[in-house]
């Protein structure tokens, strides 16, 4: 995940002692004491083939808290695009669903967008 190998993880607990172990921090800021740039986004696309009339694909996702999601459908063929929508769960997965709207040969991708505003 782009994080260096020097990672440690332990179980959840609480602060017990008051021993100073961190002299590296010059200052601390609580929420409201600093700003955050605009938003974060996730864009995902899945592929579907000509024989897919009703396709559901579940993909891993960022864990969303205040995010909203939207879906679209793109094709590279000449016939109808069809319908596409997605549903978002808070557990880190997003389901992309594509339904063919008409007969004919359709291939392309369905896309999912997740955006979190601050």
């Amino acid at each position: 995940m782009g994080i260096s190998s020097g990672i440690i993880s332990t179980v959840t607990g609480s602060v017990g002692s008051v021993t100073t172990v961190n002299d590296k921090t010059g200052y601390s800021l609580t929420a409201g004491s600093y700003s955050v740039r605009a938003s974060s986004t996730q864009h995902g696309s899945v592929s579907f083939g000509a024989s897919d009339s009703d396709l559901n694909v579940t993909i891993s996702s960022v864990t969303v808290t205040r995010a909203f999601a939207s879906g679209d459908s793109r094709t590279n063929a000449v016939t109808e695009v069809g319908q596409s929508f997605i549903s978002t769960e808070l557990t880190g997965a997003t389901t992309v669903n594509k339904k063919r709207g008409a007969s004919g040969t359709i291939t392309g991708t369905s896309a999912a967008e997740v955006m979190e505003l601050f």
Partner: peptide, 25 residues
């Protein structure tokens, strides 16, 4: 609040306390 947080965080660092954590050592 910032001063309180500065005191709290002075007790925190890698390898020292229970808690969910990740560090770039």
């Amino acid at each position: 609040m910032n001063a309180w947080q500065q005191r709290i965080q002075s007790t925190l660092g890698p390898r020292c306390l229970p808690g969910e954590q990740e560090w770039n050592l």
